[in-house]
């Protein structure tokens, strides 16, 4: 599948933004975050900027962006529509949450509920993003039970590492926020394990469909393309036949292991143990590293995905 830049940006930026927003909602409800306006403004600002920029970028890959409002109508059947509805719904509690924190400076009574509601809607939005891919049976590498958990845990990892980076200068003690560091470490480790499990499962699978089942010619023995239906690449080949990164897949897999998982884990440990400035630098680097790592991971998610239509063009078992 062709990895559209806008979709890579959409899924990684909103993932980080929603992960960050959800953690802010939950941790502030627990009273575990500094109350300072500057921190709130910075952290919430970053979360909402990532979310909004991602959502706007998603409109960029539409053929008719001016009709995008129509996408809110079919939530009964379409995960893409559900993603849109949930994303819009999330702005309500997020705005209340920001109002309570930045303007009223309150975190008592019912106010924490706004943050918790924002957290719930954030998780639901990331889940629907994942389900857009998870629901496509024509692309077996996406139609896998681990796809949604990986999207969710990566959103949590990137969000947690960004919150950790933003929080570092505001943390009362030099080592940073211990609970948040634990969350970062656990989320990145869990994401690593899930991604390894996903890659193992998907690389070992042989597709149930072949050119023979796609053409109904199973009775004639093997089926190989002879006369192509067109002389130049068409839409189907450009969109579904994209395989440009596949020859670099092994290298990109290693890069993902490194940037998205290994380096952030090491940096979190450094942050927790090192003195002041080094600690803060480690937190910032971890956030940058995981962001690049997740972009590579998402690129591979697209470039390695084989679409069943390629069976008509001679692909073997998808």
């Amino acid at each position: 599948m062709q990895p559209a830049y806008s979709v890579i940006f959409l899924t990684t930026a909103t993932g980080a933004g929603y992960g960050l927003l959800a953690l802010l909602g939950v941790l502030r409800a627990m009273g575990s975050l500094p109350d300072e306006r500057a921190f709130g403004l910075f952290a919430l600002g970053l979360a909402l900027t990532l979310i909004t920029a991602g959502l706007l970028a998603s409109a960029a890959h539409l053929g008719r962006p001016e009709r995008a409002w129509r996408a809110f109508s079919q939530w009964r059947s379409s995960w893409l529509s559900r993603e849109g509805v949930l994303a819009m719904a999330g702005y309500g509690p997020a705005a209340l949450f920001a109002f309570a924190w930045l303007v009223l400076q309150r975190n008592d009574g019912l106010w924490p509920l706004a943050g918790l509601a924002a957290a719930v809607l954030s998780v639901a939005t990331v889940y629907s993003t994942a389900m857009i891919y998870r629901s496509l049976a024509a692309i077996p590498r996406w139609h896998h039970p681990l796809v949604a958990p990986v999207y969710l845990i990566l959103a949590l990892s990137t969000g947690a590492l960004w919150l950790n980076a933003v929080l570092a200068p505001f943390a009362s003690n030099n080592g940073g926020h211990a609970l948040l560091q634990a969350i970062c470490f656990a989320a990145v480790a869990a994401a690593w394990l899930l991604k390894i499990a996903y890659w193992r499962a998907i690389d070992g699978a042989t597709g149930e469909s072949s050119t023979a089942t796609a053409t109904g010619l199973s009775g004639l023995g093997s089926v190989r393309p002879l006369d192509p239906p067109h002389v130049q690449d068409n839409y189907l080949l450009k969109e579904m036949g994209f395989a440009i990164a596949r020859k670099h897949a092994a290298k990109l897999h290693r890069l993902t292991h490194l940037l998205a998982f290994l380096v952030p884990l090491i940096l979190i440990v450094i942050q927790a143990t090192a003195p002041g400035p080094l600690s803060m630098a480690a937190a910032a680097l971890a956030a940058v590293s995981v962001s690049f790592g997740v972009v590579v991971e998402r690129w591979l998610f697209f470039a390695e995905a084989q679409h069943k239509v390629m069976l008509y063009y001679g692909a073997e078992n998808i």
């Binding site: 053929g63 008719r64 962006p65 996408a71 893409l80 857009i132 024509a138 969109e239 679409h307 239509v309």
Partner: peptide, 16 residues
């Protein structure tokens, strides 16, 4: 007139 050109339907179709 209602299509926004998101291409998701073409991704969903295994028959191209």
């Amino acid at each position: 007139d209602k299509c926004i050109g998101c291409k998701l339907c073409s991704w969903a179709c295994p028959y191209g």
